[in-house]
Simulated assay, not measured.
Amino acid sequence: MSALTTITATSFTLARNAYGALELTDAQGQVFQNVVPVRAFPIQAPEDGISLVSTDGHEVGWIDQLSDVAEPTQTLVRDALCTREFMPVLQRIASVSSFSTPCTWTVQTDRGNTEFVLRGDEDIRRLGKDNALLIADVHGIQYLVRDQFALDAHSKRILDRFL
């Protein structure tokens, strides 16, 4: 199969092999082992545009919208994406060690409480026209703020000092 050929979600089946890896079988019966789903737009449209990539880095399948795919394929893809991606959603900023950088932030996320070091103001980026932010710590972990204006007043005050 050529790297330019894309199989749509209606023309393949996806299953886990004996080792737990994803296995894609196309309409011609060709099997691709260890397929990895990759989101085209992980923040803006996480359920739209998912590429299924083989071990050699070629796209072997494409899902326009995950909701259009039948079960259990949806669950297989979502589970694989969860194990591959790690982007905690920041829900509250409890405190910062200083208002100058680098500084340590103590935060509450959807995955629990944690601390991280913010290297500089430039590590806080606005995402598109939404009120979303992406905050990178010194280790490269990205923390997502879905809506900066939906945070509590204390968190907004802290965040305003860095924006």
Rank of each mutant, 00 (worst) to 15 (best):
A3T: 10
T6K: 14
I7L: 08
T8D: 13
T8Y: 09
S11Y: 03
T13M: 01
R16N: 04
N17M: 01
Y19V: 10
L24F: 05
L24E: 02
T25I: 12
D26E: 05
D26M: 01
A27E: 11
A27H: 12
Q30V: 15
V31I: 12
V31M: 06
V31F: 01
F32C: 06
N34L: 05
P37S: 07
V38M: 08
V38T: 07
R39C: 02
A40Y: 05
A45R: 13
P46L: 03
G49T: 03
G49Y: 03
S51Q: 13
S54L: 05
S54D: 15
V77R: 02
R78V: 10
D79W: 01
C82S: 14
F86M: 09
F86Q: 07
M87C: 13
R92T: 12
A94G: 10
S98A: 15
F99H: 09
T101Q: 06
Q108M: 05
L118M: 03
L118F: 09
G120V: 07
D121E: 12
R125Y: 09
G128D: 00
K129Q: 13
K129I: 12
D130K: 12
L134V: 14
L134N: 11
A136S: 15
R146D: 03
D147I: 05
F149E: 14
F149W: 13
A153C: 06
H154L: 13
R157L: 14
D160R: 12
F162G: 01
L163D: 05
